[in-house]
Amino acid sequence: MLVPVTVTMVIIDDDPGFRRAAESMFRSLGVEVVEQAGDGASGLDAVRRNRPDWILLDVNLPDMVGIVVARTLHDEGCRSSILLASTGQSLWDDAELAAVGIHDYVAKDDLFERAAVGTLLTRQRP
């Protein structure tokens, strides 16, 4: 018997309102948000504990920038895919993001549309 495989996610963002909204949105896509974290250090712990399929990672965290969280995980050989999110446009190009193990970038205000047209959580590991 085939058991449907749930896609898991850890959300790392310092805004609790955004975390709740994002969790609702991803849940509607069939994603299970297994843990949320409000800063980089607890985010790293959450990822190490849960080994999620995806990480929704904010660009600016109170204790470190998102890029540093990504690089740390990348250097640890973490196999989770990372979706970097911010309220602005991306400050990096795809190659620069790939170099620190980030698979995709999304502007937070495009999150819903990207989900609606099915282009979220589709990019493969670089």
């Binding site: 955004f18 994002a22 949105m25 509607s28 309220t87 602005g88 937070k108 205000d109 819903f112």
Partner: peptide, 21 residues
């Protein structure tokens, strides 16, 4: 602006979109 109002507005937008659906 980035950490405050912009962040609130983005969250508001996503919640409105979820509510609409």
């Amino acid at each position: 602006l980035h950490d405050g109002a912009q962040q609130r507005l983005v969250t508001l937008l996503i919640n409105l979109q979820l509510a609409r659906r």
